[in-house]
Design a protein around this nucleic acid. Structure first.
Lengths: 157, 157
DNA sequence: ATTTTTGCAAATCATTTGCATATAT
DNA sequence: ATATATGCAAATGATTTGCAAAAAT
């Protein structure tokens, strides 16, 4: 469903070779519309009959993260996961029920970072905001047993 | 140097038993003034001759996290780490050089979360802001290597 | 032709679990 | 006394690595 092009462009832009396995992983990511773990992709690949080894999946994921077309996030449970995304700086809201995620662009976090820098004396050079909740679709579907990927105790406000 | 009391209070408040190993782990955490990994504590314990098994350290850490006197954070490298802290909701700025961390209280993030909720339709029920940078001490010490006690691996970037 | 990538299997870490024993209430 | 907590060692899981073979430029 998603487009593979952004991934290919990123590889090209970074001067990396456009290989079969990389196309395959890009495809697997594009097929998903929520977060996923490296293990998920390994399973998907095996299922789709794609010829991609586990190690390669980890390597491609790392590469894509470096190219910013994939972001490594953390679920409320503390587990690691990834989401495909546009390469500009941004953050995500991820649904605790179905895993769907959506990008959210800077809404004043930069100002907060500045404020923190001023009040603590730190030279703040990076930040990450993770937001969790229930997506519109799940809110509608409500009680019905919608697919859940990982739910655990939620942290935060 | 840190105080053990807050940890003991938390245990009491939660109705958990005040055991030797728990005191020991609280002590190890209090001795640190930056983030640490579970493995760090295992090492510290062995070094200090404290009688605490690895499994227990993980269990106590999980318990403290649940009691909110410890927070599980993620380093820029993606590695998991913990920091001891006050039980109210807050966030941390962590120094990429020495690992020292400082709490920062809500500076308008709640408003941002509301804004995100309104614009995406998500029912936002949790968030976490992680800020990374260089702490005042390291800024002064600058290039010279005079950091605090180093925590496991602090892979750069 | 050369350099980069892959796959595999083995190696590393991190974290968890079962279960008998020890301990705090 | 009794429910909880601990230790150990083995079991899981996740991620990484060495290296020869395969593919992209």
């Amino acid at each position: 469903m998603g487009d593979i092009q952004p991934f290919l462009d990123a590889l090209d832009r970074g001067g990396y070779r456009l290989t079969g396995p990389r196309r395959a992983v890009a495809g697997l990511i594009a097929e998903r519309n929520g977060h996923f773990s490296a293990a998920d992709l390994v399973t998907d690949a095996r299922h789709d009959g794609a010829e991609v080894g586990r190690a390669t999946i980890f390597r491609v994921l790392e590469l894509f993260a470096e190219l910013r077309v994939v972001e490594r996030i953390d679920l409320p449970s503390g587990a690691h996961a990834y989401v495909g995304c546009a390469p500009e700086h941004h953050h995500h809201v991820v649904c605790s029920r179905c895993g769907r995620s959506q990008e959210v662009h800077d809404l004043g976090i930069g100002a907060i970072a500045d404020e923190v820098a001023r009040s603590t004396g730190f030279h703040v050079d990076g930040h990450r905001l993770e937001l969790w909740g229930i997506c519109p679709t799940c809110l509608l579907a409500d009680g019905s047993g919608a697919p859940v990927r990982s739910s655990s105790r939620l942290r935060g406000s």
